[in-house]
């Protein structure tokens, strides 16, 4: 009897508190677009590599480097990209939260740029390039940044459906930060632009700085009904799943399990100076994998390797939408040192 009374008390407490929490939650529960929803134009990542070896994403000084911007869009829009490349040693550091305008960039004329991909400017210590894919020569001189690594800092803007204009302020991002520290803006009626930053490691000729790095490769994607066997996804073997009327988080509909396979050496070992002991130690890269879809729901936007799970399974669960049709799923990954790869698959909803 005592137990039952105690249980009732506890139940009453739980119900009362849940009501309170639910009310509180209702006040702050967001109906935001989730990171895994592709609803507009967005940037996925930068693939930078040495022109002489596309698998190596740490071009050496004096080499020709290639940068490619990977984007996704729900509409078919022309994408213009401007790249502003500076040596990290000269620049100081990259952006951190709230530090818009870190460092300084030289003033640029207030003109429209990148209307053609061959637009290019070269200042001492600064390179301006255009195009979703562009190349430039890694400066032959330079030095390590504050962390002791040689790298290039790249700021840019990707503009879908519009034109890129140099901001007349000359890049004073501390006062107007619509494009952050990037002295460009995307203009045009139906345009959507995003400023971005990227740090590219500069390898050494001797290859002993720990900067040398190769891109991880997504070698395959497997999919199957959750709890069942997963099969490789190819253009000829598109995964299929029944549509689902219940789009809630706790939906009981059948889900599709998607897992990403990487090449054997995707998680490279690299030497790094341990800041605690000031000695060189070997570390393994940790992969970060992102997932975005055009319809339906995912159980999360990202999967990562962690200290607890250094070789995490990069998988996701897909809840099909209410309407039948093809759903695009874009998978993109980085090894944490500038390496990048992406893959897009189609899921057919019946």
């Amino acid at each position: 009897m005592k137990t039952r009374r105690s249980s009732r008390t506890r139940t009453a407490l739980v119900i009362a508190s849940m009501a309170v929490l639910a009310t509180a939650g209702a006040q702050s529960c967001a109906t935001f677009t989730e990171a895994w929803q592709l609803t507009d134009f967005r940037i996925l990542g930068v693939r930078a590599y040495a022109e002489s070896d596309p698998t190596r994403n740490s071009p050496r000084r004096g080499e020709t480097a290639v940068v490619e911007l990977s984007t996704a869009d729900v509409r078919d829009r022309n994408v213009r990209v401007a790249w502003l490349i500076v040596d990290s040693a000269a620049f100081g550091t990259t952006m951190t939260s709230g530090d818009a305008g870190a460092g300084s960039t030289p003033s640029l004329p207030a003109i429209s740029i990148c209307d053609t991909p061959d637009f290019a400017l070269d200042f001492p210590g600064l390179t301006l390039r255009c195009g979703t894919r562009s190349s430039f020569t890694v400066p032959s001189t330079g030095g390590p940044d504050a962390r002791g690594r040689e790298s290039l800092t790249i700021f840019g803007v990707a503009c879908a459906g519009g034109r890129i204009r140099v901001r007349p302020t000359g890049g004073d991002a501390g006062t107007g930060a619509s494009t952050g520290g990037v002295p460009f803006e995307c203009t045009g009626g139906e345009s959507r632009g995003w400023p971005f930053q990227y740090t590219m490691l500069v390898g050494s000729a001797a290859g002993n700085t720990g900067n040398d790095n190769r891109h991880p490769q997504i070698v395959g994607v497997r999919a199957g009904i959750m709890g069942g066997t997963l099969s490789p996804v190819t253009d000829a073997a598109i995964p299929r799943i029944q549509r689902c009327a219940d789009q809630s988080r706790m939906s009981q509909c059948t889900r599709l399990r998607v897992e990403v396979d990487f090449n054997e050496g995707a998680r490279e070992s690299y030497p790094e100076r341990d800041p605690n002991t000031n000695t060189i130690v070997m570390r393994d890269e940790r992969l970060v994998t992102g997932f975005i879809i055009t319809k339906g729901r995912l159980s999360g936007g990202f999967r990562t390797d962690s200290a607890a799970e250094p070789r995490s399974v990069m998988g996701n669960d897909f809840l099909p939408p209410t309407e039948p049709g093809d759903v695009r799923m874009v998978i993109y990954a980085t090894d944490g040192r500038g390496g990048f790869d992406t893959r897009e698959i189609t899921i057919r909803v019946d």
Partner: peptide, 18 residues
């Protein structure tokens, strides 16, 4: 918040303060 900047290395957006 005045905007955001995409960090292509970490796949996250950096908040830019007004």
């Amino acid at each position: 918040v005045a905007g955001a900047l995409y960090d292509a290395n970490s796949f996250s957006y950096v908040m830019l303060n007004g």
